[in-house]
Every structure is written in structure tokens, then in C-alpha cells.
Design a protein around this nucleic acid. Sequence first.
DNA 1: GACTCTACTGGGAATGACTTTCATTTTCAA
DNA 2: TTGAAAATGAAAGTCATTCCCAGTAGAGTC
Lengths: 126, 126
Amino acid sequence: MLPKNYQLIYEIVEESGLGHHLTPSEIYALARRRRPGLGLTTVYRGLERLRDLGLVSELNVPGADAAAYEPSGPRHAHFRCKRCGTIEDVAFAIPARTLRKLAAAHGFTIDAERITFGGRCSACSA
Amino acid sequence: MLPKNYQLIYEIVEESGLGHHLTPSEIYALARRRRPGLGLTTVYRGLERLRDLGLVSELNVPGADAAAYEPSGPRHAHFRCKRCGTIEDVAFAIPARTLRKLAAAHGFTIDAERITFGGRCSACSA
DNA sequence: GACTCTACTGGGAATGACTTTCATTTTCAA
DNA sequence: TTGAAAATGAAAGTCATTCCCAGTAGAGTC
């Protein structure tokens, strides 16, 4: 059974909705609204646990100063605007067949895939 | 003209060869062998410049505590073993046509693409 | 209920990568 | 030569993340 606090952390990430991305300290701030006295350490520990359970995904994007978390959903990529820093979800994933081929060719096993694009978002390229 | 120190930093990353990945502090240590008294600040500044010039690429891999640098070469992906932390190059890139389609569909421009796989390397999965 | 063992908890200190600041030095074109 | 702009290094600062440790809550047992 998941400890209450980890449950809370999961709810917060979950409620943020797909396509939103929260940093640990944002999660901390939100969680303390519902359970003041909660420690930052617990948030980090909870996120680690949830990550291991596959309930949330960590996406750390180059250029961003902190990691971000989102509820685990269908595989997708991320786009980060180099100017304003916004992160968007992009519906793109490498076909499983391709992954299998790569893994076979290199002799390793792949259980995670992270794709990030960088550039200018529509607002910033105007 | 590139300042001497930045040149030195570039040479170090360059000589590391494709497929090798150096952290700023490793680069710092190597650079000081040739130019003692060089400051860590200069290494960071140099890497930033070289990155802007497109001469080196930064690959920051989730789970690693520091960023890593490699000479800019043909586009490729990286694989990081979750157990031993080794980073390998993987000859894989998303086709330009696919990138164009994604960019057009979302209204942004893509000028960078970062792909990282996670899993177990051949040694660690045995 | 009382007991125990374990997992969970929070605060604060520690770590470590990276950045900022600032006074000094180098570069290089005029 | 000279003067502005760029580069430099030391030290201090920032900030996300982790470690440590003593205290607490919960599940299971008697």
C-alpha cells in the first residue's frame, strides 16, 4: 500500500493533467497546501518511488534548472522553446520495432526512451 | 578568433574522440595539465561558447549528476545504462522529413533533437 | 490493550554543479 | 601607443538534490 503522502504527491502530479509538468518544488508547494508540515525530502522520496512504480515520468530537459514530472501516459516526446522555456508535449514515439532492432544490434536492453526537441515555439518565432 | 583557452577546451573535447563524453570537471582537469592555473570558470564559459558555435554538443542525461560534452558530429542518440551509468553512442536519428512534419503540425521550429535511451548495457544485463 | 519491528517522516546540514561578481589582464584595432 | 572590449581567475553565491538522524506512525502479533 502506498503511503498517504506518496498518494498525495501522485494525486498532485495526476491532477496537473497530461501535458503539464511540475518541478519538485512546485509539487512541494502544492502538497503543503493540503498537508502543511510535509517535508521536501518526502516529496523527493515520493517522486522516486512513483517513478520506480512507473506512475510518473521524469523529464529532465536540457536548459531547465530543475527536473519536471508528469503522470505516465502514452509515450510521447517533448519540445522546449529555447527562448521562453515552455515545454510542450509532442505526439511522437519511436516504433517498438525500431527499438528492438537497436537493442539487438547493440546488445543492450532498452526500457526507457526520452526524446526532446529544442527550438522556438510559435509565439517566440514570430 | 577563438581565445586560446577556448581553443584548448575544444581540442580536449575533440581529442576525446567521438563516442566519448567528458564532464566539465574532467575537462578542467585535463586542461590544467596543459595550462595550470586555468580556472574552472573559464572552462564553463568556453563550453558555453563552443556550444553556441555548434562545435561541441552538450548531452545531459537523466540520472547523471553532471552534464557531458562531446564534439559535434553526425546526429545520433545516446544510451545510458541505469546500473553502471555508462553512456554509449547509438547510430539513430529521426528523419528530417518527420521533424519537418512535426514542426509544421505544431507551429514551432526545431533546431535540436536529443534522444536518450535507458536500460541495461550488455555487461550489466548478464 | 501492549509490544515490536519496520517503513516513513521532517529538519537541517551537506553536497556538488554551476553562476555571478569583480578587479585584473590580455587582445587588438585605431 | 592607447584605449575600449573581451577574457580571465578567485572567491563567494545560488540552488536543486541528497544525506543523516532521531522521532513517529502503522501493521502485525501476542
